[in-house]
Design a binder for these strands. Structure first.
Lengths: 346, 346
DNA sequence: ACCGCGAGGTTTTACGTATAACGTCGAGGT
DNA sequence: ACCTCGACGTTATACGTAAAACCTCGCGGT
């Protein structure tokens, strides 16, 4: 692409640009930094920009950081990237960051509550700010103490020491699930909750219970499981095989648990959705890979990342952060159907 | 944890440590840099290390990078993090990096063949090196031209300009699949290939065809599809509904395609595995979420990342890189079974 | 005639680190 | 008694950038 055949032995510095353009290094810095209103003539500025471009100049980020005492890098703290939701959050955050000349470095928090290795070990010394998921609770205290702007994702609004917050309307999502299943005639529910202790899961459970409590004649039992298919299957199997009237709807905190629940149902000879409706949460890729496809709640994961990064940039510029939660919506697919007629006993 | 209650207004520098320890800044640098054999007495070194620790000293990475002209940061170039395989590769790479004081910054290549935005825009100016997946072909040329050590993951051994290479024994994996299905009596195959143009998928196809060609009486037809469940289902559906003797085994380049294929089979009234065996590749989380669970090839994704980072570190230290491909192995699950008896026609 | 002033720059400095180049001091050799 | 030399440090410098402080005109006002 470039017509310059030099093997790039050493990159041009702002001083090289200055020399080539016949100005001082300071002028180059001013022009390229955009702070030259009334300090440098438009003609000179244009010439500097031209030579900078011709030389393929790129500012040395290390030098800039050293000078400024802060980097244009944000730390994104998430539980794990193998969690599709967070991979998508990262994608969104990185996209917005790139537009503003920011970088994003990840800190995968060991797990919810871990020994919390130094979150800054993997990052540059002085970051521009931190964006953290509430699920990465392990590292939170260390982050708060660092004196950096902190943007929290999907977190408890009661938390303090937070510069901005990007929330999903989780409760509304769960209300939609409840409404959907109630409209289908379901009355006996099981809530298959995630055993992960985090605000978002707590919020899901609370919203479901609140929604169901409002309707007379409903019952709901809660069981919890680790966040993997196998654990979900085992927990669901136990619940479904328990004595007493069998639930007709299994509301899961996560698509992964829902997938496990579907397997449990099949093992017990129950058809989904004819005998048992199962709902997930998150709308992961998995949701449309399993059979039947999962009725679930779609979360705008990329948007969470985008808004998170945008919020951080706003905070850094002392601009106000636009508030409001991101809407989520139910996607009705094949795993939910009208409740079966009330049979005497299985 | 720390008993120091100061709000961390400014971090201690090496000069602060020097002052506190009663030595010069240079000595601190020497001691902490580990290059003091015979230049500083053991007693002084110990004292310096002690005060550094007491003060909570952490070197300023920006300053170090500026001085050294390179950073202890590697760029990991992958197609997308939402691909579980690469999320796992990242995890492995980041773990090894952290052990050696390295950071990892991601560059999600737009897609296989894209306009290839500047890979360095998101990263620090001068990286320590680059680790790139062969699937991120779009950015490759830019990377090669940067004069940085380049470690390629799962890539064509014929590629040049590569400092080290970490490969999976993809061909052997596909041979295991072929052997497994042949032993089950299958003779009529379809290869559901990924439409993504990359070395790894080409290698999978080649290995399958080679393995089957060696056995008389086998046939194999290839169809390709984009790498998502829906595309896989559509492609499989078309192939399975085509006239002529129906294949009994559907070998997929990826678990995602295999999940789609299973759905296609069900739609056509075929039972998996009784009427049709389906195999995947990669052993994603999805493989055990669908029903039946997929027979697939397990790839040590984390190890790929670990070895990739280790190789980069070795190259940077002028140490030899331990060669050899990583073994992969077949995991036989519920989606493959003996071939059905040869029926006249469906 | 002289001052003030603003446009359009330039000189200088500091950021924190790594390391090359340079002391200093006491012991051992002659 | 003087020189050498190794052990143990120190001083000085450079990395590339941003920005404060400082120059130098030419021009309009009085």
């Amino acid at each position: 692409m470039t017509s310059a055949p030099q093997p790039a032995p050493t990159r041009p510095t702002s001083r090289d640009v200055a020399r080539a353009a016949g100005v001082s290094q300071a002028t180059v810095s001013l022009v390229l930094g955009g702070k030259w209103r009334g300090r440098v003539s438009e003609a000179t500025a244009e010439r500097v920009r031209g030579t900078a471009h011709d030389l393929g100049y790129r500012p040395n980020l290390a030098a800039r950081s050293l000078r400024l005492g802060r980097t244009r890098t944000a730390l994104l703290v998430v539980p794990a990237l193998t969690n599709e939701f967070f991979a998508r959050v990262y994608t969104g955050a990185a996209a917005v960051a790139a537009e503003h000349g920011f970088g994003v470095v990840l800190y995968p928090s060991p797990d919810g509550t871990g020994p919390a290795r130094d979150p800054f070990a993997s990052a540059s010394t002085s970051l521009g700010g931190v964006i953290a998921s509430s699920m990465a609770a392990g590292a939170l205290d260390a982050l708060r103490g660092a004196g950096l702007p902190l943007v929290m994702l999907d977190s408890d609004p009661a938390d303090t020491g937070v510069a901005a917050r990007v929330n999903l309307d989780i409760a509304d999502g769960m209300r939609q699930v409840a409404g959907h299943l109630l409209a289908l005639g379901h009355r006996r529910f099981v809530h298959l909750a995630s055993a992960v202790d985090s605000w978002t899961f707590a919020a899901r459970g609370r919203a479901l219970h609140d929604a169901l409590r409002a309707v007379p004649g409903t019952s709901v039992r809660t069981v919890s499981a680790a966040l993997d298919v196998h654990a979900g299957r085992v927990a669901a199997e136990r619940t479904l095989a328990a004595p007493g009237p069998r639930p007709t709807a299994l509301v899961c905190d996560d698509d992964i648990l829902a997938a496990g629940a579907c397997k449990a149902a099949r093992r017990l000879g129950l058809r989904v959705p004819e005998d048992l409706s199962v709902t997930g949460f998150d709308d992961l890729a998995l949701a449309t890979a399993v059979e039947p496809e999962l009725t679930t709640v779609q979360l705008p994961a990329e948007q969470v990342g985008e808004r998170g990064m945008a919020a951080l940039l706003a905070v850094l510029d002392d601009r106000p952060v636009e508030p409001g939660s991101l809407p989520v919506h139910l996607v009705a697919r094949g795993s939910s159907a009208p409740a079966p007629p009330d049979a005497p006993r299985s």
